[in-house]
Design a protein around this nucleic acid. Sequence first.
DNA 1: CATGAATGAGCGTTCATTCAT
DNA 2: TATGAATGAACGCTCATTCAT
Lengths: 190, 190, 190, 190
Amino acid sequence: MKLKDESKRTAIVSKTIDIVFDKGFAGVKMAELARMVGVSPSTLYVYYKNKEDLIVSIATTLIKNVSSNSNNEVKEELPFKLKLKAVWLYWLHFSINHSKEMSFLQQVKQSPYYSLVPSEIKDEKAQMANSLLDLGKKEGLIKNVDNEILSAVIGSIMSETCKMILSQKLKLNKSDNDMMFSMLWDAIKS
Amino acid sequence: MKLKDESKRTAIVSKTIDIVFDKGFAGVKMAELARMVGVSPSTLYVYYKNKEDLIVSIATTLIKNVSSNSNNEVKEELPFKLKLKAVWLYWLHFSINHSKEMSFLQQVKQSPYYSLVPSEIKDEKAQMANSLLDLGKKEGLIKNVDNEILSAVIGSIMSETCKMILSQKLKLNKSDNDMMFSMLWDAIKS
Amino acid sequence: MKLKDESKRTAIVSKTIDIVFDKGFAGVKMAELARMVGVSPSTLYVYYKNKEDLIVSIATTLIKNVSSNSNNEVKEELPFKLKLKAVWLYWLHFSINHSKEMSFLQQVKQSPYYSLVPSEIKDEKAQMANSLLDLGKKEGLIKNVDNEILSAVIGSIMSETCKMILSQKLKLNKSDNDMMFSMLWDAIKS
Amino acid sequence: MKLKDESKRTAIVSKTIDIVFDKGFAGVKMAELARMVGVSPSTLYVYYKNKEDLIVSIATTLIKNVSSNSNNEVKEELPFKLKLKAVWLYWLHFSINHSKEMSFLQQVKQSPYYSLVPSEIKDEKAQMANSLLDLGKKEGLIKNVDNEILSAVIGSIMSETCKMILSQKLKLNKSDNDMMFSMLWDAIKS
DNA sequence: CATGAATGAGCGTTCATTCAT
DNA sequence: TATGAATGAACGCTCATTCAT
């Protein structure tokens, strides 16, 4: 009996993310993916029910990992602004270091696949953001605006920052980080 | 009923934008588009060389129109902040009223089609933004940050605002507009 | 503009019936069918939505034709037994002369495809049989048994007769016909 | 060990018959069958060379069982008509009680698999029928018609009777049985 | 004997594009 | 110009069977 090779699954995930980064979901051809992984096309269907399942499963796993990873970043002892900045920096570095995965997630979010990601998974990140923003509001430091709106603004500025770092219009150094964070902070502070 | 040539082209453009809004580029099937327009599939190829040409042509036209339309909005006599707010409001209304076209452009921008749009076209909007931002910097009102970065931040906040208005998390009234503009202004002001 | 060639549809129907006769529905491979007809596989989809539609459409057409053809066979002036024999003989000849079509229909009837044939089509033959059988009952000539049962018995004997003629265990001559019809008549007569 | 094996084989046979009853031969997917039996797909190939062998083996076994079972039913002391009726009733009950197996056999008979069933097996039933029919002919009670034809007629009426009982258009009671048997008897009696 | 991962060959279907009129 | 039939080149997916343990 052949044992299921978990590294094969990893390879499939990795190559899929690469392809999506390069050519989007439509660019993922099962046959080509299989060739890149070094297996037969039908082998892909041993690991995933179909193309949709492949993409949604990867997205779900990524979201789970991303959510769990950032849970530990909020140091309790810091003042709110520094706490926010720590989270911001963590996310920035994470996004830069996992830019393909992040690109994958971003593309999923604006595709019909996203509706197939279990909703309890989707909520995790929002809940984390909520608790942090609520803290800032309680201390009277940030605008009394709906969390969803604050999150959207923060997320969009972060996303643009990433894009510019990746296209080398910004650097991942203290001065650029400070500059971008100050724009973010000014936007949401009371 | 037979349509005249230019109105036929207009119909093709309109239906294409509708489909892209609903299902993305992959959702544009030439045969289905033809059926919706009321012509034969081959007729589409009388007006456009192929599907790529169809999409890139529409994108190019849209960008041209959008750029030219917003040229007239900057009233010289206003102080900078109000001038900026006027532009912001103009864009917000424009984007809401042309949400399908804007969605089309946004999708083009993160697709391989964008690289096929003539670069002189792409620049127009940037140049307009530049002149306005330079004005604000000269008056010492906004942060001394690269225009491209400022534009990105402004654009992303505006894009999120539009999304939230369209999903009815925000309304297109004075209080919501003021709130969002204040976040924008705070982000970029000195 | 190329004109749709109705003879192409006929060729598709004919070859499909041939294949079903030889190898059953599972033996109908769209690519092979196309090759036999002399067109591209995708051309088949110009004429039929998919394989299911191909088979159900053919079945529907066949049933329609069969029903309408046999309508004219009942000569009013004949006594009932001869009337029935005339119908029997008509059907026997028709079935022998269209044995592949009949085989197609028989296979459809015991396949899931049959449930997709419009039910108003299916009923036609039953109604014809009913009116004839009711006549025989009114004259007291045949057993007072539910028409559905009588039809089943008659149909099954006819079907076996056809099979045996085709396998040359019976001949299509007067003596064999009379023999088989006498078994049929004895089975149902009062 | 041997016991375990045979019960596994029995389970495979049973599930196969179930699937064929529900969805026909094309509905038998080796992987799904294995799952239903509770073994691995490759285990099926320990018991049967391939799918064809699986189906043909089952058919062969079924035919053997069916033939041997009905051997004992002809009570010598009965007059011919009652003897025939006893056989008829035995078969009717047997067919109803083993409707899935009978459906399997019927489907095999009109499939290419049937040609792979050893012909000596196929003949058994015919030989039994022959001896009974010869008896009836010797007594001058039934038509002097080729046994193969008589068998076909008898078999087809029985098959229709079973179908109608299973679809509850007939009941398995004395009156319905008598009615159907009288049609059968009238068809073949001198 | 038993397994379950792996696969090759093939299937039905889609669709941008071209052909022939 | 306008057509709609026709198509080639994929594509996603299935499944009986084999491999390796």
